[in-house]
Amino acid sequence: MSDARQILETAPGDEADVEHEFGGGVMGYTVGLGLAALLTATAFVLPALNLVWPPSLPIALGVLAIAQMGVHVVFFLHVTTGPDNVNNVLALAFGALIVFLIIGGSVWIMHAMNANMMNPAMHM
């Protein structure tokens, strides 16, 4: 088996690839930990210090959370762009679509319904 072929067919953590370090090694996980800790700390400190314009806070926190999820997926779950990861990426894209439809759809529909019912308890 040629080297090029072996590289093409193996992913981080593959059984056949014993001489490679797993998932980027300790360094990979440490970089992931550092980035995740930074994003978490920012999410907790940002609203407490009134650093951002208050109405933009939900967007800022949402962006930080999605960025941290991305860090986890790349550095801890090792979803890569490699050829043997195409199925994983496609499944993730489908899962993200369903999650977006469920959360976004529910919030949108219930918000519109509450607005139309003019329920005095709901100032949304």
Partner: peptide, 12 residues
Amino acid sequence: LLSTYACGLASI
């Protein structure tokens, strides 16, 4: 977060 990091070290 630290637990997840340690879990990564365990898989290494």
